[in-house]
C-alpha cells in the first residue's frame, strides 16, 4: 500500500532519521532509568540543557560546533550533581525519586524560561547544505544525526562491554551490595552512570535543536518517546532499545506518510502500549515474563 502510494527513497531516509532520533534521545535514559532504575522525569530537561548550552555558546562565540561539543559536558555535570546531591539518597525509594526528578524538571524548565524567555530560539545548522534524494533536498545535518546515533550506540556498547567501568556498572546494577563488598565503589559507579546518561541526553538536545524549534518545552517533546523506547525495548537492554527505536520511529515515519501526524502519533503510542503489555522486546522485563530472571539476591 505504501509503495503504491508512492513511497520514495527520500521517505526511507526519513524513516532512518526518525528511528535515529528515537534512539538518540533514549540512550541517555538507558543509563538513568534502564540501568539505575530511576524514573527519571528530568531526562527531558537534560536534553533541554544541552540544547540551550549549544544555543548560548552559539550566541557568545558564533561557533555552533563548539556549543555542541560543550553541551554534553554541561548536561553531564548537572546530571552528576543531581545524582550526588539528591538522587543517591533515593535509590531504594522509587516514589520519592520520581517526585524528586519531577521537581527538578520543573525547576530547570522555569530557570531556563527565566534566563532565555519563553520565546522560540533557533540553533543554526552547523554544517548547512543539502544533498538530493529522489528530487528532494535533504540537509546534510540529518545524515550527521544518523551517523552520530550509530557512533553513540557503538560507543556505549563498547563502554559497557569492554571496559572496567562497564563491568563494574553491570555488577552494580544487578547486585550493588555484592559489588560493594567485592571492592566496587558503587556510589561512584552510579554517579558516573547518571552523568554519562545526562551527557548523552545533552548531546541529543544539542544535535536535535537545529531540526526543531528551541523553547523551554523542547525537552518535553522527547520525554515520553524516550520512556516508550526504553520500556518497549526491555529495561536494561541496549539491543532492545535500538530495536524499539527502529520500530517506533520507523512506524511514526511511515504512518505520517499515509495519515495525519497526530493520528500517527496516537497509533505509535498504541503500538508501544500493546507491545509493552504483550511482549517487551528484550531485557529484564522479557526475562521476568519467561521466568528466566534469577532469584532475588539478598545482599
Amino acid at each position: 500500500m505504501i509503495l503504491a502510494a508512492g513511497f520514495l527513497p527520500v521517505d526511507s531516509f526519513n524513516v532512518l532519521v526518525l528511528a535515529a532520533v528515537f534512539i538518540l534521545v533514549a540512550v541517555g535514559l538507558h543509563f538513568t532509568f534502564g540501568m539505575l532504575n530511576v524514573v527519571n522525569l528530568v531526562h527531558g530537561e537534560l536534553i533541554l540543557i544541552g540544547a540551550y548550552t549549544a544555543f548560548q555558546i552559539q550566541q557568545e562565540t558564533g561557533n555552533v560546533l563548539l556549543g555542541m561539543a560543550l553541551a554534553p559536558l554541561v548536561a553531564g555535570m548537572v546530571g552528576g550533581a543531581m545524582e550526588r546531591g539528591v538522587l543517591r539518597f533515593l535509590y531504594d525509594r522509587p516514589l520519592d525519586s520520581l517526585l524528586a526528578t519531577f521537581g527538578l524538571s520543573v525547576i530547570i524548565r522555569q530557570v531556563v524560561q527565566l534566563i532565555f524567555s519563553p520565546n522560540p530560539r533557533t540553533l543554526r545548522d552547523p554544517i548547512g547544505g543539502s544533498f538530493v534524494v529522489s528530487g528532494f533536498n535533504i540537509p546534510w545535518w540529518r545524515l550527521v544525526i544518523v551517523i552520530a546515533t550509530v557512533v553513540v550506540v557503538v560507543g556505549v556498547s563498547l563502554l559497557l562491554s569492554r571496559t572496567s567501568f562497564g563491568l563494574h556498572a553491570r555488577a552494580t546494577v544487578v547486585n550493588p551490595g555484592l559489588a560493594e563488598t567485592m571492592g566496587v565503589n558503587t556510589g561512584l559507579v552510579r554517579a558516573g552512570l547518571f552523568a554519562i546518561g545526562s551527557a548523552i541526553a545533552g548531546l541529543a538536545g544539542a544535535m536535535l535543536a537545529p531540526i526543531s524549534t528551541l523553547n523551554p518545552q523542547f525537552g518535553l517533546l522527547f520525554l515520553v518517546n524516550s520512556f516508550l523506547v526504553v520500556i518497549l525495548g526491555g529495561k536494561g537492554s541496549l539491543r532492545g532499545l535500538i530495536l524499539a527505536g527502529v520500530v517506533l520511529g520507523g512506524s511514526l515515519a511511515v504512518l505520517q506518510f499515509v495519515i495525519s501526524t497526530v493520528l500517527a502519533q496516537i497509533i505509535v503510542l498504541a503500538i508501544a502500549i500493546v507491545g509493552v503489555r504483550v511482549r517487551p522486546l528484550l531485557g529484564q522485563a522479557r526475562q521476568e515474563r519467561k521466568g528466566r530472571r534469577p532469584r532475588p539476591l539478598s545482599l
Partner: peptide, 21 residues
C-alpha cells in the same frame, strides 16, 4: 563503606553463593 573495607584486605564468602546475573 564496603569497598574500602575490601580494599583494606577483608573479603566475604557469602552463604547464598551470590553471583552477578
Amino acid at each position: 563503606p564496603g569497598h574500602r573495607i575490601n580494599a583494606a584486605g577483608m573479603v566475604w564468602v557469602t552463604q547464598e553463593d551470590s553471583v552477578f546475573p
